[in-house]
Nucleic acid binder design. Structure first.
Length: 325
DNA sequence: AAAGCTCCCAACCGCAGACCA
DNA sequence: GTGGTCTGCGGTTGGGAGCTT
């Protein structure tokens, strides 16, 4: 008995996805929405198994995915959450909405584990085998040590990521969406607008604050909504405090500091928030800013796509291939 | 210059749970 | 209740890129 593997059929393609396959998949999902993966290969003609299609979408093509180096704040959050939740990458990823579980898992395995091990041996050479949770609780109990840790996690320690096709196609779906919505057709250098690049840079800078906001909303908001007696199901006092210690939550103002009454109110403030692009003075919540930034077409990606060594040569081909162009 | 080594990450694999007939 | 199918998750791996010798 036993279920036959879904990917061992003849004619099923494996290995890296091509731009053409990505476009086909994204076009299909934009039309039909994600889900019913079983039917995707049949309906699209892709020689991929359903699993492979789902994975490609969730880990790569899905809108809103941020790629590239993790910020120190993200690192801190991953370390905290890993200590709290263990290797529940999907759960951890839900607190970092722009990162996929696969990305977080990879980053943990390739960077953070080593980093922690180093720090661990520096902290206590005799305790090589203790778990990360033990280590975290030991070394990050105070705010200062976490700050030191995150401060030391400078980008210089992280290797630059090679620019491959896969890593440059971070958001083909957004590309398509933006392309279809924006009426003027792209025309090479017209996309090379400085302000668009600045906009993207700023959104990267602002990202930490969005993440903090997201943690506040997703993780802590239930305190506001749930009666006191139920809040224990969601998060322990210790966990709450450890989340609070994250530096990235500085921009979140707490009407009530903790879960003492079950009526925590979370408001966000722009105080101390520096937006060099527009230098806006208006009071706008992070969510509003996010919504605003999301309505901006991802032109800088198009720019990348058009200039990318792989992308550039393939645009023509893709435009021929896909009826939406 | 090139062979060997290491690192990194996209993709694969297998398992478990949810769902449905 | 049972068995088949689908989906999601976490662990693992293959191979390309970069580094070292």
């Amino acid at each position: 008995m036993g279920r036959p593997p879904c990917c061992d059929k003849d004619g099923i393609k494996k290995g890296p996805w091509t731009p053409e396959e990505d476009i086909i998949l994204v076009s299909y999902i934009q039309e039909h929405g994600p889900g019913n993966w079983r039917s995707v290969p049949t309906n699209t003609g892709l020689l991929r198994c359903s699993k492979s299609c789902r994975l490609r979408w969730t880990n790569y093509l899905r809108p809103g995915i941020k790629r590239g180096n993790f910020t120190p704040h993200e690192e801190g959050m991953i370390i905290h959450l890993q200590a709290l939740l263990g290797n529940k990458w999907a759960a951890i990823a839900s607190y970092l909405p722009q990162r996929t579980d696969n990305d977080i898992k990879n980053y943990w395995n390739t960077h953070l584990k080593k980093k922690l091990k180093k720090l661990q041996s520096a902290w206590d050479p005799m305790a090589q085998d203790s778990t990360s949770s033990q280590f975290i609780s030991k070394s990050f109990n105070d705010r200062k040590s976490l700050d030191n840790f995150t401060a030391n996690s400078s980008p210089a320690l992280r290797p630059n990521q090679a620019s491959t096709y896969a890593s440059s196609t971070e958001n083909i779906s957004r590309l398509l969406e933006g392309w279809m919505r924006s009426s003027p057709k792209p025309n090479s250098s017209s996309f090379l607008l400085k302000e668009n690049r600045e906009q993207e840079n700023n959104s990267l800078e602002n990202n930490d604050h969005d993440i903090a906001n997201s943690v506040a909303i997703n993780y802590l908001q239930p305190y506001k909504e749930k009666p006191e007696q139920e809040s224990g199901d969601l998060i322990s006092h210790e966990e709450f405090e450890s989340i609070l210690s994250l530096e990235s939550l500085h921009d979140v103002a707490w009407d009530k500091p903790c879960c003492d009454s079950g009526t925590v109110t979370i408001t966000t403030t722009t105080e101390g928030f520096h937006n060099s692009a527009s230098d806006e003075k208006e009071n706008m919540t992070m969510i509003e800013r996010k919504q605003k930034s999301e309505s901006t077409p991802p032109l800088s990606f198009l720019e990348k796509w058009l200039l990318d060594e792989n992308g550039a040569g393939q645009v023509e081909e893709i435009m021929k291939l896909s009826p939406i162009f």
